[in-house]
Nucleic acid binder design. Structure first.
Length: 286
DNA sequence: CTTCTTGTTACTGA
DNA sequence: ATCAGTAACAAGAA
């Protein structure tokens, strides 16, 4: 499940590898993942190149060099963007089970071929991800829907406090709401709440001043640390430098149900909260 | 066979 | 307006 740290890692890798490469071909084998008219999509991309790649929440935004257009890529739950140059594989997605060193494979729905013969593959087992080309206005409208960016300078304690003001939803649902705070998914929501010793069912309006401070601090710290470890979901993935995404080893509650809590030894509980499988320690989270 | 998995949107009803 | 709950999307694991 690519969340902010995983998408950030992919974005950084792609920025260092594919900028200004000329796109010589776009091969689409599953048209429904392209949310444009396919002819338009191909016409814009052919002979174009990516001038920059950015991220907002979990959305990847590729600026195109020719024409004022942007390629948006959302990986949803099982999407991957994998760049391959010769035998060298540079940027990956998650889910080792669909990961094979041979591309395209049965989950490859689209790929770009660049003029140096390197290729960028979009793979997606569940086919929920998408690619779409938008103009500046459409991009602006899309970006309006995203809330505070946790690793940006806007994510101050003051701004975080005003975001919480007059809200009543439970804190788990709050963390998952992309319109309020962008980029947190199920894994990091549970990890942040565990680190903050706050129960996921707590209503926002019951949070104490020190709990809000703790929440703010841990959102930043955990996401930052996960980016440093190249995310959680690349466990079998090895990049060009032989590095692994290894935040998986750092998880304290996600997928740890029935195991003892690493802080207090109590049992990690799993319950359905805000429509998601939610793990927490009923002893140290209050 | 059933149930669970999760990002996002859409929809219902309170 | 705000919030909770659920279905839908799809494929695979258990």
């Amino acid at each position: 499940m690519p969340e902010l740290p995983e998408v950030e890692t992919i974005k950084n890798d792609l920025n260092s590898k594919i900028l200004n490469l000329k796109i010589s071909q776009v091969t689409v084998s599953l048209p429904k993942i392209v949310k444009n008219d396919l002819t338009f999509f191909q016409n814009i991309l052919n002979n174009n190149s990516f001038s920059n790649i950015n991220r907002r929440g979990k959305l990847i935004i590729c600026s195109l060099k020719n024409g004022n257009y942007f390629l948006l890529v959302h990986l949803k739950m099982t999407g991957q963007l994998i760049y391959q140059k010769g035998e060298e594989i540079i940027a990956g997605g998650h889910n080792e089970d669909q990961f094979s060193l041979s591309f395209p494979n049965k989950h490859t729905h689209l790929f770009f071929t660049f003029s140096d013969q390197s290729r960028l593959f979009f793979n997606d087992l569940r086919q929920f991800g998408y690619l779409t080309i938008v103009d500046q206005d459409q991009l602006n409208n899309k970006l309006k829907l995203y809330g505070l960016e946790p690793l940006s300078s806007d994510f101050t304690l003051k701004n975080f406090r005003s975001l919480l003001h007059n809200r009543k939803k439970n804190v788990k649902a709050f963390l998952l709401d992309q319109n309020l705070i962008a980029g947190i998914g199920n894994i990091y929501a549970d990890e942040v709440l565990f680190a903050s010793e706050i129960l996921p069912t707590r209503s926002i309006d019951t949070l104490q001043t020190d709990e809000i401070r703790e929440l703010h601090k841990n959102i930043k710290a955990i996401l930052k640390r996960a980016v440093k470890y190249r995310g959680t979901t690349f466990n079998n993935f090895v990049d060009a430098n032989g590095q692994k995404g290894s935040f998986l080893e750092k998880l304290r509650v996600y997928k740890k149900e029935k195991e003892p809590c690493s802080k207090c030894g109590g049992e990690i509980i799993k319950k359905r909260i805000a429509g998601r499988g939610t793990r927490f320690c009923s002893e140290c989270q209050r």
